[in-house]
Design a binder for these strands. Structure first.
Lengths: 248, 248
DNA sequence: CGTAACCTTGATTAAGATCAATTCTCGTGG
DNA sequence: CCACGAGAATTGATCTTAATCAAGGTTACG
């Protein structure tokens, strides 16, 4: 299957590109579809280009020697990933000496991607200042996210991190997310605001730098404090003020 | 004081730029010198441009509500910092609505910087593809570093993190560091390899995501295991194999 | 309606933070 | 050259958070 140019324009990196360049991209990229749980690439696997996510969700994660997993980043449609090696290891890429720096797994069924090979892409980049600037903006955003991620891992306990996560889900997604999720949350039902978790609790634990059991207990604590109410994947916000207070 | 063009060329971002552009940069940038412990900017302070480090060392760090500090990044001469807002908040910069996302402190005497204001710099960037590509490479490198940082914070205990730090100091600095440090370490003395810590143990603890007391105890453990020997700022490596074994 | 995946709960342990008291080191002035 | 004092580092005792181990419960879905 080949994607239409229109679909490719859904990737933020390519929204402002002209039709002929778009056609080139379409020509040299490959399309793939994954089921939930399938691996896109492993850490240390040979690098074969970067990914654009069209549909679904992808987790980027590391695994420790002992087998514990930590999600470094969640990717939503319209965004790209595994683009880092392009710019600091370009010479090695030409000699096929580069590896993916992380693991990537689809965590939804029907996760669709296009894979863009490095060399033709660098050609596009070379001719398109807009793409260049968008890539810079992309990196800036990611650095900001990662900085916040580090800060919350090192300076905040699990309860605070969870509170922060719930709040970030609540305060309407900054364009990182697709419509689908936007519609889902936050919503009101019987006068209660709620969010709908779009990842498993296992993945949420891993994203918050903890384990499933601890997450479960932390949810319980927040419920006991009448801050939230957990019903399966739905989390009702009972006291937003208190929730915000956790993070100063 | 104004820096010479030659000095500005020491900044990796500007090594390949032409003389007239260099002169422009020199003209609109300001020079500053700091003593150990002085603040370059605080988290949330109004953004007034990015920094190029000429001499000394700068720590970029966050502080928790409770007062605990975590160093997110150490900057060495030749490198730039606080450049992130340029690319994801440029419009807000024009309206003076942007803040520094982190704290920056000089941790050496005679720390010298130049400060580059945003708007004229974006002009330079717009006309110089090389600068653009270097900025991309810079971001890639930083993302890689941050990824590793997160991974070690979340998946490794303090002993492993310390071992990793010592090893990274040992395996000769990848250009991030200036000559000075390169000469200092690693060295041999009475047939023993050693490194010389170039930051205080307080800062090292903060960089490793722990506190001084825990760092001290961890050094002790590594000494008891005959892996290293600590003499003030000097760390002798007694068993490099064992040191490497900690990180798989 | 049965099974697998997902999640919760309890008991125990371990790592590391906190609090508190010294000790060490090194630069400065007498 | 020595003494003093401040900042830096060490050590001990205790407490807290979260990981681990183990078992049981829930939910979704064929």
């Amino acid at each position: 299957m080949i994607l239409s140019r229109k679909q490719i324009k859904n990737i933020f990196l390519f929204t402002d590109i002209n039709e002929s360049e778009l056609e080139k991209i379409r020509a040299f990229s490959t399309y793939k579809k994954y089921k939930k749980g399938e691996i896109l690439f492993f850490d240390s696997e040979p690098y074969r280009g970067f990914f654009c996510l069209m549909e679904g969700t992808v987790k980027l994660y590391k695994i420790s020697k002992e087998g514990r997993e930590h999600i470094v980043h969640l990717v939503y449609p319209g965004n790209i990933f595994a683009e880092v090696p392009l710019f600091d290891k370009y010479d090695e890429i030409k000699n096929n000496q580069v590896e993916y720096p992380i693991n990537a797994m689809a965590i939804e069924d029907d996760t669709e991607v296009i894979i863009i090979p490095s060399i033709p892409f660098m050609d596009i980049l070379d001719k398109n200042k807009v793409v260049c600037m968008k890539m810079l903006a992309n990196f800036s955003k990611r650095l900001r996210t990662l900085n916040e991620h580090i800060t919350s891992m090192t300076l905040q306990d699990v309860k605070k991190r969870l509170a922060q996560y719930i709040l970030s889900e609540l305060e309407n997604f900054d364009g990182n997310r697709k419509q689908k999720t936007l519609i889902k949350s936050p919503k009101k039902n019987e006068d209660k605001i709620f969010i709908e978790l779009n990842i498993s609790k296992y993945d949420l634990a891993s994203l918050l730098g903890t384990i499933l059991e601890t997450l479960s207990r932390t949810f319980k604590k927040l419920q006991e404090e009448k801050v939230i109410e957990v019903k399966g994947k739905r989390i009702y916000i009972l006291n937003q003020t208190k929730l915000k207070a956790y993070n100063s």
